[in-house]
């Protein structure tokens, strides 16, 4: 039997038909199969969070999740945050607060932060730290990212 699976992935509300190997990770299927390259691969080992996407609203490390297992779920990637040219408040705030340097961690940070605020619109500083605890950033020192999430909570609150 063939190792190939013809599957449909629903990303940011749009269905994409992709053909993947059974072992294909979701991040690769997104980047190469749908052309949505906002999702990054850092460690490819479930450690850094650069690959974070939302599955039915909850964060998942897409580097370590099988693409075939994401069929039928609503996948949200960083491309799904902005409304046309209008950045999502999290995106705007992370820029305005200087929470982006090289930017490699940013898509994953944004997705974890989005999931956190969706569940808990008014998080404490500690709750934000826990919400982002699966995301590494080697540039910013985190403080400005935390500030951006706090500012977004206040803005949306």
């Amino acid at each position: 039997m063939s190792d190939k699976h013809a599957i449909q992935l629903t990303v940011n509300g749009v269905p994409y038909d992709v053909t993947v190997d059974q072992s294909q990770n979701l991040s690769g299927a997104l980047r190469n199969g749908t052309g949505l390259t906002g999702t990054k691969e850092g460690c490819d080992d479930c450690e850094c969070g650069a690959c974070m996407v939302l599955l039915d609203g909850s964060p998942v490390n897409s580097c370590s999740y099988l693409a075939v297992q994401a069929q039928g779920r609503d996948i949200t990637t960083v491309e799904g945050l902005a409304d046309g040219d209008d950045l999502h408040p999290l995106q705007r705030n992370i820029l305005e607060h200087g929470g982006v340097q090289c930017g490699f961690c940013t898509p994953g940070m944004l997705m974890s932060a989005r999931a956190l605020l969706d569940r808990n619109p008014n998080p404490s500083n500690e709750e934000i730290r826990i919400g982002l605890s699966g995301n590494l950033c080697r540039c910013t020192g985190y403080a400005r990212i935390l500030e951006a999430v706090e500012a977004t909570a206040v803005e949306l609150g």
Binding site: Q22, L66, Q69
Partner: peptide, 27 residues
């Protein structure tokens, strides 16, 4: 395979091959 957080991660780390026949039980 439930969440795959041991199975997929272990296979990608090369600890073992991903089983050829899988049934997802998370739904």
């Amino acid at each position: 395979i439930a969440g795959g957080s041991d199975l997929v991660v272990g296979a990608r780390q090369g600890k073992f091959d991903l089983p050829a026949e899988l049934v997802a039980i998370d739904r």
